[in-house]
């Protein structure tokens, strides 16, 4: 690994930026604006994760296809999300009751 090009200060600087972003993501929701909360909470989470991946995990100087490897995992998850959303995000069946627990099965059958 050619991390010699990454001096000490570099890491500490990244760490400083990460902490600043952390503060923003905690303060953001306190303004109680839903859109802003989404951006500060999840937008910043993505930025933080990318920074850790790029600088601490050295993905910025790693072979290109390692990115592809990791991203194909995320693509699989996206497919999972899309495939499941139409089933899991519906409310049909929510009123199902556990008739074994309430022992009303017998009456239902009669």
């Amino acid at each position: 690994m050619t991390a010699e090009s990454h001096g000490h200060t570099n890491y500490v600087k990244i760490w400083g930026i990460l902490l600043f972003l952390l503060v923003v993501s905690v303060v953001g929701p306190m303004l109680e604006i839903p859109v802003l909360t989404l951006i500060t909470a999840f937008g910043i989470a993505i930025v933080k994760a990318l920074m850790v991946a790029a600088y601490f995990m050295h993905l910025n100087i790693e072979k290109r296809y390692v990115w592809y490897m990791l991203i194909s995992g995320l693509v699989a998850l996206l497919v999972l999300f899309v495939g499941l959303s139409s089933d899991i995000m519906t409310d049909t069946g929510k009123n199902w009751e556990d008739c074994i627990a309430t022992s009303s099965c017998v009456e239902q059958r009669l």
Binding site: M69, L70, L74, A76, L77, F81, I88
Partner: peptide, 24 residues
């Protein structure tokens, strides 16, 4: 890297389930 790739799908699967139910 391969370990991490497979862990992404494990944690990601859990988070996906959570997100789907949370949004609903």
């Amino acid at each position: 890297w391969w370990v991490i790739a497979s862990e992404i799908v494990i944690f990601g699967g859990l988070v996906t389930c959570y997100l789907l139910m949370r949004l609903n």
